[in-house]
Amino acid sequence: MDKIDYLVDKAARMRKLVMEMCIRAGTGHVTSSFSCVELLVALYHGRVLRYDAHSPSWPRRDRFILSKGQASPILYAVLADCGFFPKSWLRSFCQAGGKFGVHLQHDVPGVEITTGSLGYGLGIGAGMALAARLNRELYLTYVLLGDGECHEGSVWEAAMFAGHHQLNNLVAIVDRNWLCATDFTENCMRLNPLHKKWASFGWDVVCINGHSFPEILSAFSGLDSRQRNRPLAVIANTVKGRGVDFMENQPLWHGIAPEKEEARHALCRLKKQQKNLI
């Protein structure tokens, strides 16, 4: 199996794992997770992030911040799959006595910060990136934001800060699925031209298909050499709910897990996708 096939297979497995977690819990942000499955799989399984699952606080690790903390199910699934903690923890997602719930918790191995209140991850990531520069450390800091999250003013305060300080060890990834909780981003408060906004804040910007592993890996290649002198924004065009046709691009599927017949349909589709890959 070549690298891309391996990643595609891994993404299919992760989608199924997330769906099972959320159906069991009867809650969880399935669609928000599904838009960034390929991004997280590429980061953790595509040799992009440096990490040691047996030593989550390894000082030389790259920092990954999931600022859109509602997509915690996919990060938890990926972290468990990488060995940061036992996969059995996923079964108690949102259950009494479980280790974690809907929004991301900093006390889970492999998780850098608590998120769930949107708009804070980029500022914290900028602080980490600045600290790396001051301490002459080589790690990179990646922050994954939702596009709806970019409505928050604090995102732009942090973007301005990072651009001003030319933090070329900082990468912002915008999961551009075009939806926030109740409506399309462009209906409630227009974000476009999003790439120009980031560029005007002093960032290099690349726009990619966020479900294409070759495009994702290409966007993240060569970052270690620090050839650029600006932070990098990767705007990843994605589909919210990607992988389950009746959930794709539907505002009403935000923040909920399918039940009963719909749950069976969703799982059936994901299993089929995995089988087709095999």
Binding site: L122, I124, G125, G127, M128, L130
Partner: peptide, 8 residues
Amino acid sequence: TVAVGLAL
């Protein structure tokens, strides 16, 4: 937030 990133 930057202060927290630095502190962490």
